[in-house]
């Protein structure tokens, strides 16, 4: 029996990497998914692979009209019970190397995109009897993360918005939690060399990187009714690296 049976879940940035892993796991747990992304080919291919349990919509998370389109797709499926705010960019640069344009781009995609998503889903989720929002932050939203000031700023913002939204949306039976992945083995890490990534593992108590599927497992718990009394929580999934 699937742990997300009968649920409809919207996943931003769902066409590849962690978002795609989440889409596959949600479907494996009995949910149907709306995959939003800018990558039309990858998104359509994933939707086809998920064979009737998924639709792909082109989505720029900084555009309200694109959120409306994603919501229409969910409504056509029958409602909405979950949102994974997964879309994000990661262009690490130190403070002195970060210009206003790079900073604003992170704010728009990572922070404004998350805000617009949380806001957009409320009416349909409420109509569907409540729901669960999972915001994908980062361990960069839990501590001082080196060489990525714009990214860190937005990931701290997600953590804060999660708690504020959890309070605002509780009366509407919508839970909001944040997930903070540490070193995860996806294409995002290719911004560093293999040696650099290897070196980072020294500081992980579990001595390895995590996988996209492991993130998806945490997201499934937070989307499911198993976590019905969990809201405003932040969970790092980092092999202990922030300790």
């Amino acid at each position: 029996m699937g742990r997300l049976n009968g649920k409809i879940i919207l996943i931003s940035g769902g066409a590849r990497g962690q978002g795609a892993a989440e889409a596959r796991r949600c479907v494996a747990e009995g949910a149907r998914v709306v995959i939003g992304d800018l990558l039309d080919d990858a998104g359509n291919a994933l939707a086809a692979e998920l064979n009737g349990a998924a639709v792909y919509v082109h989505q720029d998370v900084t555009k309200e009209a694109d959120w409306d389109a994603a919501l229409q797709a969910a409504e056509a499926m029958g409602g909405l019970h979950g949102l994974i705010n997964n879309a994000g960019i990661y262009q690490p640069k130190r403070l002195m190397d970060t210009d206003a344009e790079l900073f604003e781009r992170h704010m728009r995609v990572n922070q404004l995109g998350c805000f617009l998503g949380m806001k957009a889903v409320v009416p349909l989720m409420e109509k569907s009897g409540g729901g669960s929002i999972v915001n994908i932050s980062s361990t960069a939203g839990l501590r001082g993360s080196p060489g990525a000031i714009a990214y860190s700023a937005t990931k701290w913002a997600l953590r804060g918005m999660t708690k504020a939204a959890a309070v605002d949306l509780a009366p509407r039976k919508i839970r909001v939690n944040s997930v903070h992945p540490g070193p995860i083995d996806t294409d995002m890490l290719k911004v560093r060399t293999a040696e650099e990534n290897e070196q980072r593992l020294q500081f992980v108590p579990m001595k390895r990187m995590g996988t996209a599927d492991e993130i998806a497992s945490l997201v499934v718990y937070l989307l499911s009714d198993e976590s019905g009394y969990v809201t405003g929580a932040e969970v790092a999934i980092d092999g202990g690296s922030t300790l």
Binding site: E214, Y229, G232, I237
Partner: peptide, 17 residues
């Protein structure tokens, strides 16, 4: 939860918020 360690998970209905 095989990559999750050292976490303090609140199951509190948001009471700590």
């Amino acid at each position: 939860a095989r990559f999750i360690t050292g976490q303090v998970l609140g199951v509190d209905g948001g009471a700590t918020l």
